[in-house]
Each structure stands twice: as C-alpha cells, then as structure tokens.
Design a binder for these strands. Structure first.
Lengths: 247, 247
DNA sequence: CCGTATTTGTCCGTATGTATG
DNA sequence: ACATACATACGGACAAATACG
C-alpha cells in the first residue's frame, strides 16, 4: 500500500491523507516506515534495502527514498556502501558492549534527573508498568515483557525532562535493539531480576533519591548486558519472527 | 569552486579528484562541506540554506544537496521546515543547558575509560596540548586556546577507545558549538581555570585513576557551562568573524 | 487580496558502476 | 575475460507551496 494512505490510517482518522501530507514530507513518511520495519524486525540485520523495491512498496519515487536512507544512515540504523547500496546495520558483540557503556552513562543521568523532576502522572505510569511486568513475570510471557521494558525506559527518559538527553538516548536504544533483539530477555530468571531492578528504580525515584536512582539505573544497564550475554551463551531459543530478507 | 576539485585539494595530493570521487559520493562531500561551514561559523545560527545557492557554489545538482540536508538534520546541525527550507539550528540557553548535562555524562564516561585504556602516544599528545594551553594562557590568546580545547577533548574521546561513545560525543560537542560559539572562553580567568582542570584530568589519566578522571571530566563540563554563562552575562566581546548570512 | 517570482517537493531519465553468467 | 543485467548516483523537469510586490 502507498505510504500516503497508510500513514493517514495509522494516525487515527482514516481518510485524511491530505492533512498528513500537508504536515509531513514524503521523505519523513518513508523514513518513519523504514525505521518501523527495521525496529520491528521485519527487516533483518544485514538485509539489503533496494531503492526501487521501496518505491513500488510505498508508491513514491526514488528521491524521497534516497533522502530517507541518508536520515537512517545518520541515525545509525543502516550502513551505506558507495555504488553498492544500503544495508540494515549489523551490530557486533564488541560494538554492542561499547554501546551498552554509552547507554549506562545516559541512563544514569536519566535516573538522576528523573528522581528530582518526575511528575505524579509519570510516576503512576511507571508503577503501572512495573505491575504489568510482575504479571508477565508470573506467566513467563517474554513477548509481553519486552515492550513493557521499552516503555518503562521511555517513560523514565521522558521524566528526566531533557530533550537532548531523550534524543540521544533513543538513538542508542535503537542501535542496541539491532543486536540480536530476538534473544533479549527470554529467560525466566532474567525477567525476574530485571523486574526487581525496575522496582528498585521506581522506589528511588518516588523518594526523590537522585544518587540512588542514578546508580541503580546505571547498574541496571550493565546487568542487562551481562544477562544478555549469558542468554546468548545458552542454547538459542526460538526466533520471534521470520525476517523478510537476509543479506 | 566545485566541491569535486576542492575536496581533492584538501585531502592532500592535488589533481586526483578522481580518487576522491571513487571513494566518496557527492552527497558525502557536500555534507562535509556544509558541516564545515556551519561548525566554522561561516554560516551563522539561524541562517537559511538555499538549495540552488549551494548547487551553484559547489557545482552539483539538487539531489546530493538535499540528501546532505537530511544528514545534517539528523546530526542536529540544521532544522527543516516543510515547504520553507532548512536553517542552521539555533540553540537556546535552555537547550544548551540540557545538552551540557548530556555532555557531562559522556565526558565522565570518557574520563573513566581513558584512564585505563589511554596509549602512551595519546598521553604524550595530551601533555603537549596542555603545554600549549599554558602558553596561550600566558599570552591570553583566546583564538589559540579555543582549537586547543577542542583538540584536547577529541584526543580524550579517542583515548576512551569506544567508537559509539566517540560518535555520540562528537554530535553533542557539535551542537554545543552552535550556541554562541563566538563567546566561548574569551575571558582570561576562564582560560586559566579551564587549563588547570585539563591538567588535573591528564594527571588522573596518567595515574590510571578511573574514578578521579571520571569525576574531574564531569565537573569540568559543568564548570565550563558556568563559565560560559558568566561570560555571557558580561559585556559582549568582539565577534570572531562576520557571519555570512542572518535569518 | 491577487498575481508573479522564487523556492521547495517530487518524479523520472541517463550515466556509471557492480554483480553474474 | 567479456557481455549482459541490474542497482545506484546524478542531473534536470515539472508540480506545489510560499514569499513578495
């Protein structure tokens, strides 16, 4: 389906593709759609992105597609080889370790700022998320836990009330999700431990303990990395979805 | 002058524009050239970037220019208004404060990692830079101090040995340089204090004291912000250059 | 408020480079 | 190694929106 109508539907009221196009360029729409496909895992790491294929799929010409590629390149989601094409970025284990360090530093800052600035409404959302995490923990539902985890950290970043921090944090989280995302947190013990850490963070934020929240969130990221690496060392669990293409 | 020959000259051997073009796309060359103009201050904050003007100036068509715009947009150097054009990003004082927080967190990580991983060659470069800083301090030469400061932090980031960290750090530093860069560190006392802090960082890194280096570099960024704000409160010093355009 | 000029948004054709048999 | 097929890189034309007189 062409991106013009598709976006209009997603944004709510169907039929007002006109309004969407008045506010967003085709480049932006294409960029968001390709980003969605990458983040959701529809496009596997290493997959080649063919310009003309996207033109046909989205019903646009090659200009907007090429511009969207350049945006995704800067966002760290794809890699471009001159005269050869663009590919979904592959994050090696060494690279992932480096990115985890950056994320830990940013998450520490998020914890520190959120502890002093969090709004009651955000605190309520955090507590609701943790509650649902405990439910997912009981039923060992990793498919439910994964998006809750993303949402928790999204709300924390919002609570920090720093737009530059949020922007940089999102980019880092996106890049980490390229790294074997299908294997994240499939282990029951890992879910339990992760939930405990989230609860501790919420408690510190509730009490306004900036230093504690900073350290807890920093350590949480480091622990997450360790849990992931342990999970990778064990026999591989089933994949979440069948990726569309492989390079 | 057309970007094709210009880049060939800059990269060293004049006349081999062919090699440059074989390795870099026009989009990349245009992006680097516009970024240079923004970072150097040739393009003032808020200035409008006209597509056709850049086409004529750089001798390329609108395709590569538009793609370069999208890259710069993601890099945070320009802002795009649909159907109106792209403008050099303006960083408000509130935004700058937020970015400083992010930079402090990243610089803290840089200090911690550099203390354990710095190579002898990098340590030598750091010491040489600080030495030249002391010289600039004696002659109160702020024009010389400014690039030394950039170089110092560039070497520190390199010493941290984390590519993801370096990439994110560069982006943040670039954005901060959009904020009244002409006023940075023009005050004698500020130069002296800043140099002292750099020296302390080098000492901690030399001794491999990760925790100390982390804290010193973190505090250095926070102090830099305070110094900048104090400088902004005093009567404005002369501008460095005449900006080309103003929005 | 309207018409014109300018600028941006989109599309497509051609040249050049790459992969494949 | 060569030729063919295919994908990307670049340029240029048309359409739509904005700015200006």
């Amino acid at each position: 389906m062409a991106i013009r109508e598709k976006e209009a539907e997603l944004t709510g009221t169907p039929g007002d593709a006109l309004r969407v196009l008045r506010e967003h360029s085709l480049t932006t729409l294409v960029q968001r759609e390709i980003e969605r496909q990458i983040v959701s895992g529809d496009l596997a790491a290493g997959a080649k992105l063919n310009e003309v294929d996207f033109c046909n799929e989205l019903g646009v010409s090659r200009g907007p597609v090429r511009e969207a590629f350049r945006m995704l390149e800067q966002a760290g989601l794809v890699r471009t080889e001159k005269n050869r094409g663009v590919f979904v970025r592959q994050v090696s284990i060494e690279e992932a370790n480096e990115i985890y360090d950056v994320r830990a530093a940013l998450d520490g800052l998020i914890g520190r700022l959120a502890a002093t600035r969090v709004k009651p409404e955000q605190l309520a959302r955090l507590k609701a998320i943790v509650k649902r995490m405990r439910a997912a923990e009981r039923t060992l539902d990793a498919d439910e836990y994964f998006p809750l985890n993303l949402e928790f950290h999204e709300v924390m970043a919002e609570a920090a009330g720093n737009r530059a921090l949020t922007a940089n944090y999102r980019r880092v989280v996106n890049e980490l999700n390229l790294y074997r995302r299908e294997m994240l947190l499939r282990d029951a013990d890992n879910i339990t431990l992760s939930t405990r850490e989230h609860e501790a963070v919420v408690e510190a934020v509730t009490k306004g303990q900036a230093d504690v929240a900073e350290r807890l969130l920093f350590d949480h990221v480091i622990h997450s990395r360790e849990r992931l690496h342990r999970a990778l060392a064990t026999p591989a669990p089933r994949a979440r979805k069948a990726p569309r293409k492989a390079a």
